[in-house]
Nucleic acid binder design. Structure first.
Lengths: 245, 245
DNA sequence: GAGTGGTCTAGACCACGAG
DNA sequence: TCGTGGTCTAGACCACTCA
């Protein structure tokens, strides 16, 4: 592990332990450099990690301050519902409801960098948390990955994990659009809610390490089962409002 | 403007103009350093901006690649509905429906770093986009900022802007919890939707530059009016799933 | 093995904040 | 005014990817 990661971890632990209260000042860069025997650049890199996590606030001229003390999830595995569930202590399961090959639409072609009409694989998957249905995924896979997806166990726990094991595919980058929709009749039936009741929708496009679009998906969570959490600051802001589209 | 910001802007423009296609490689750091006459560190800082925006992907050992080409919003003003609306070409308006002082609850005390029972100001505000009601804000302000909030014009366009002008307060940091809920009867009446219809809810806590909690709010968007957009990668991941709470 | 990005150092100057 | 974080440089070594 890199030196700056160790230092970041050390500082994070101190914050989580409550050694620095919320609103309290962190030591200056010079002092930290001294304490850890590292160059100022390394210290800055370490503190930048905490700033990105939203635990620490930073402004030119003033000492850095502690903003929060809650340890967030390990971020590395957002795309895997199963891995997230496990880390939260839930038992995740899933089942393929339907699976079809068909030519892609215009908009799918654009989102997956395909030529219109090229074949894609669509999969409807129901995901459960401790047996409770919470998520309905309507996923469109690019044709080139379709065979590997079709070979998967329909009730496998983690598609992400299985695809990595099978063909070394890593879901590296994602774009997400989050809004609320009313449950359609199929949604309602499978998720066990009333038609028209609120669902949290996450439309995403996932890309491989090489920048190749792999899948796009319309995921619908039962209301009350899951929320998305984001931390930000005026300077670094991952969250963008968009008009519904 | 800093040198690295200029370079980042230059590269971003080139990507947006399509000079680098999606999936294409960016020039190496050495080449960019040469081209811009800057040190490698400065180039790295510039490229890091694009990586954070999700436009560019980066892995050790391989050339950086272009992931997307859509210009995201200027991020600096997330907390201001009005400023976001203006930048999107909409006309924002707002009106205070109700405003009350009362002792804070236990959970509000925790979220705003107050002592239980301390007085807070609660404001119910309806926000419109081009005249259409789209957002209902139920905001709880810490007592120390309440007087400034009460002096505001009830129909002022941007609370953020007005508070900055009036008392120099900057909303610097935020924590957000996003989920979907059914419209209650008050929600339905004010937003002009049916009771029980889906709303996108954003619960947030906002903090001043000094790390002092200012307000927490329950914001509900009419479905279809707005979506939240997020870009991420396996290494830098601002988005965290949480169980509904 | 060559090229590339990731880490780290040591030092400089500047812009901003707080007292 | 002085301490602090923000920017920038120049050079070094390492880990990784890819042909």
């Amino acid at each position: 592990m890199a030196r700056y990661e160790q230092i970041a971890g050390d500082l994070r632990d101190a914050i989580v332990r409550g050694e620095y209260a919320i609103g309290a000042q962190l030591p200056s860069e010079a002092e930290l450099a001294d304490r850890y025997g590292a160059a100022r650049g390394t210290i800055r890199q370490a503190v930048a990690v905490l700033v990105n996590e939203g635990l620490v606030g930073s402004r030119q001229g003033a000492r850095r301050i502690v903003l929060g003390s809650e340890r967030s999830q390990s971020f590395a595995e957002l795309h895997s519902f199963a891995q997230w569930a496990r880390s939260m202590g839930y038992r995740a399961s899933g089942a393929v409801v339907r699976s079809d090959r068909r030519p892609c639409t215009q908009s799918e072609a654009a989102r997956l960098s395909l030529t219109p009409g090229e074949e894609v694989l669509t999969v409807l998957r129901l995901r459960r948390l401790d047996g409770e249905p919470v998520l309905l995924e309507r996923t469109v896979y690019a044709g080139w990955i379709a065979p590997a997806v079709e070979r998967l166990d329909p009730s496998c726990e983690s598609v992400t994990q299985e695809l990595y094991d099978a063909v070394g595919l890593v879901f590296a980058y994602g774009e997400h659009l989050i809004d609320a929709v009313a449950a359609g009749s199929e949604d309602a039936r499978l998720l066990g809610v009333r038609r028209g009741s609120p669902l949290l929708r996450q439309r995403r496009t996932t890309t491989s390490q090489e920048g190749r679009p792999v899948e796009c998906s319309d995921d619908r969570y039962r209301a009350g089962s899951v929320a998305f959490s984001i931390r930000n600051s005026t300077s670094t802001n991952p969250l963008v409002r968009r008009t519904g589209d």
